[in-house]
């Protein structure tokens, strides 16, 4: 008999950690955490070999709850910390959990360079379109004309397509989904961890308490419905008329290819340096 999903999650949560968690009722972060845990549980990985690294923000509080090696770092720097961990111990599975502000604003430089290096990290960006932890400031993924506490007249900036950014920078696995699509998220996380290179998954999340309230999106159920109704799978894009695609969230594996991974290349470099011996 297959394990009950709730029990699986319980197994992977820390029992010595003082719950409750910091997330608001209706927040998508817990749902995504569930998908991540189910993906890992299905992979037969030794949890001693898993390192979860995060930066600062609501989603970045995730590592503290899970029973892996966990590292909650500085705002924007999760990928840089993760690079250090991975390079010193390449056999570890290093998963970065980050938010839109953490990853695409203050941490944008680390994102693009890690993607360029194609270092084997799995970056899961939970995009709630706002800075939730600090109370609702505009983020690089806040849609044009949406409201935030620091965009009280509407956001005049265009939003960032972080997936395109990662692809342009050289990421070899790029996917997008929403918190509503839990099974899809779970599959993508599994695929991304197995992918030998830099992987980015953007998970569109609902922040009903901050973003939803500022933008009159209704509560959590309404926002979940919007994710369901306002997103289309990549496979369907070609079959639909352009007006049905316009403004929709495209879900799916947007890009996947194989090119030399950084740690593997570094291992080759070490062999070369050692073969050359004592002199430069």
């Amino acid at each position: 008999m297959p394990a009950i999903p709730q029990k699986i999650i319980h197994e992977y949560l820390r029992h010595d950690k003082k719950f409750p968690h910091v997330w608001c009722a209706g927040c998508s972060n817990g749902i995504v955490l569930g998908s991540i845990i189910r993906a890992i549980a299905g992979m037969n990985l030794d949890r001693n070999d898993i390192v979860m690294v995060s930066g600062i923000g609501c989603s970045s509080r995730m590592p503290v709850y899970v029973d892996f090696n966990t590292l909650h770092t500085l705002h924007g720097r999760a990928i840089a910390f993760a690079t250090g961990v991975k390079l010193h111990k390449p056999h570890l599975k290093v998963i970065v959990v980050t938010g839109d502000g953490d990853c695409a604003a203050i941490g944008g430089n680390h994102l693009i360079h890690a993607a360029r290096r194609n270092i084997d990290l799995t970056v899961i960006m939970l995009n709630n379109n706002i800075y939730g932890m600090t109370g609702g400031q505009v983020s690089p993924t806040t849609p044009h004309e949406a409201y935030a506490t620091t965009a009280p007249y509407g956001n005049i900036e265009p939003d960032f397509d972080v997936c395109k950014l990662a692809m342009g920078a050289g990421a070899t696995y790029v996917a997008r989904t929403t918190a509503f699509h839990t099974q899809e998220t779970q599959n993508m996380v599994k695929e991304a961890i197995e992918h030998p290179g830099f992987a980015l998954i953007e998970v569109i999340c609902a922040c009903p308490v901050i973003y939803g309230r500022l933008n009159k999106k209704g509560g959590a159920p309404e926002m979940m419905k919007e994710m369901r109704d306002n997103s289309i799978p990549l496979a369907a894009v070609d079959k639909l008329p352009p007006e049905k695609v316009q403004g929709k969230i495209i879900r799916g594996v947007l890009h996947k290819d194989i090119r030399p991974e950084y740690c593997a290349q570094y291992a080759e470099l070490m062999k070369k340096a050692q073969a050359q011996g004592g002199s430069k």
Binding site: V53, T73, T83, G84, L87, H88, K89, L92
Partner: peptide, 11 residues
């Protein structure tokens, strides 16, 4: 940050 990450991995 990479230095601190590596140190936590034992470097």
């Amino acid at each position: 940050c990479a230095v601190i990450g590596a140190s936590l991995a034992g470097a």
